[in-house]
């Protein structure tokens, strides 16, 4: 019943989510620097030709955030929920 941990069997080895991500981001820009220092800007779909000895960088969409502040806010929320929890009897 609800104790079963599995929800998406296909995601166990990352295969399902990997193929989903491939389908959704074929145009993602990847910056590759080879051993000679040549910088290449390529799309995700064009990466199959690059060698393993290549430094890769993908610009992140993550913005600067304050992790301590976020964790503290979350802790406050959780604590408020737990404080309201009473067990009768």
């Amino acid at each position: 019943m609800s104790k079963k941990p599995t929800r998406l069997p296909a995601a166990q080895d990352g295969w399902h989510v990997q193929t989903t991500a491939n389908a959704l981001s074929p145009d993602k820009t990847v910056i590759a620097v080879n051993k000679q220092g040549t910088v290449l800007h390529m799309q995700r779909n064009g990466m199959s030709a690059i060698g393993k000895d290549t430094l890769l960088f993908v610009p992140t969409t993550r913005y600067t955030d304050n992790i301590i502040h976020h964790k503290h806010q979350r802790l406050n929320e959780l604590n408020n929920t737990l404080t309201g929890l009473t067990v009768e009897g």
């Binding site: 620097v33 000679q36 220092g37 000895d53 290549t54 960088f57 992140t60 993550r62 600067t64």
Partner: peptide, 25 residues
């Protein structure tokens, strides 16, 4: 230096925004 991720970070990343580089080999 175009081949250095340190230089790339200094020249291209915004202050405090994380960048992730990967070297498969």
């Amino acid at each position: 230096d175009p081949s250095s991720f340190v230089s790339y970070t200094y020249n291209n990343l915004q202050d405090g925004v994380p960048g992730l580089f990967y070297w498969e080999s």
